[in-house]
């Protein structure tokens, strides 16, 4: 497997050679890089070639393939982000970065499926974060290498155009399944919930979680027409009777608490499509998988990438691997 984590001098050389890059690194590392055709998000957690790693010095590099015809970097505010799909090239893909805990993060999470031209081309990326020791002290950021701007509340996207003989696809690996337990529905969409319907019966969700002793390391899982989409627990606030999530729950959607996972790496390996791993152009995985499954030092075979505060595959995801593949159009 090629090396993916590099020191800033090496990355600077790539930028100066005119490479188009999609980067992940600690804020101090990204701040050392020269201007060029790149965007980057802050995070010091990675699945690198040697396994899960925390690294504040080096930068995870996704070098865009040389056959890409065109790229355009766009900084979006909350209002403008609704055009992200329309702005994409007809044949291509778009790589996005959004700073965690910003209003644009919350807005994207709630509204992306309603954006005009949803799904016109693959939109993949991640939510930037910070070292967990720095939570509350340092804000997640995104860096626009083309003009040197650094944002805490804008999304950055590098739209990429592919030649006619290539196509990109986007998919996810989610090892969590809906468990056999209660059906949970929410009365309104949002990032937290107090009163919910459990098998149609109204009750306080924080009390329910406590009474049932739910393992909150396991997400709620919804069935999106065959795709399993997770909502991760952030906090159960028993005092205020509220449960806070890492992604919004949606009104009317049916969720169930996930079944237990015994061995993340084993399950992950079994779920990863083996015919795709050599075609993966970019992937990212969730910091909750990294933490709860103790992935530091462990390898997820064939797959590297930043470990993030949220994954994006058309919309915001939790505890999921998102990956982009680029393949040749069959003759």
């Amino acid at each position: 497997m090629d090396k993916v984590l590099h020191d800033t001098q090496y990355v600077s050389r790539l930028i100066e050679e005119g490479k188009s890059l999609y980067l992940a690194g600690d804020e101090q590392a990204l701040a050392k890089l020269p201007k060029g055709n790149w965007i980057g998000g802050t995070i010091p957690y990675f699945m690198a070639e040697e396994g899960g790693e925390v690294n504040r010095d080096n930068v995870y590099v996704t070098e865009l393939p040389g056959y890409i015809k065109n790229t355009k970097i766009v900084a979006y505010d909350e209002e403008g982000l609704k055009n992200v799909y329309e702005d994409a090239y007809d044949n291509g893909f778009s790589l996005i970065l959004i700073p965690a805990m910003s209003s644009i993060h919350f807005s994207f999470a709630l509204n992306a499926p309603d954006y005009k031209a949803f799904g016109k081309s693959p939109l993949v990326g991640w939510i930037s974060g910070v070292h967990l020791d720095d939570l509350g002290k340092v804000t997640p950021k995104v860096f626009n290498g083309s003009d040197g701007q650094v944002y805490e509340n804008k999304a950055l996207v590098i739209h990429c155009e592919l030649p006619e003989n290539k196509y990109a696809t986007l998919d996810i690996v989610n090892i969590f399944d809906q468990g056999p337990g209660d059906k949970i529905t929410f009365k309104s969409s949002g990032w937290d919930a107090d009163v919910v319907l459990v098998n149609g019966e109204e009750m306080n969700f924080a009390e329910y979680v406590e009474k049932k002793q739910l393992d909150t390391r396991l997400p709620l899982v919804a069935d999106y027409s065959g795709a399993r989409i997770n909502i991760s627990f952030q906090n159960v606030d028993r005092e205020n009777g509220k449960v806070v999530f890492y992604a919004p729950v949606f009104e009317g959607m049916e969720y169930r608490h996930a079944s237990e996972i015994k061995d993340y790496v084993k399950e992950f390996t079994e779920h990863l499509p083996t015919d795709k791993s050599d075609k993966i152009a970019f992937s990212c995985n969730c910091i909750l998988n990294f933490l709860y499954s103790d992935l530091e030092g462990k390898k997820t075979p064939g797959v590297t990438g930043p470990i993030t505060f949220g994954e994006i595959a058309y919309q915001l995801l939790n505890q999921t691997l998102a990956y982009l593949t680029i393949e040749d159009v069959p003759n």
Binding site: P113, D114, F118, G119, L170, D171, I172, A222, Y224, S225, G226, A227, I229, F250, E251, G252, M253, A313, Y314, Q315
Partner: peptide
Amino acid sequence: SNPQFNFLALKILLTRLKMNIKK
């Protein structure tokens, strides 16, 4: 009818539309 689909964006869109249709 609940056929299994392959295209992730279609699965997400169908789910959103089905939620609209509940109303």
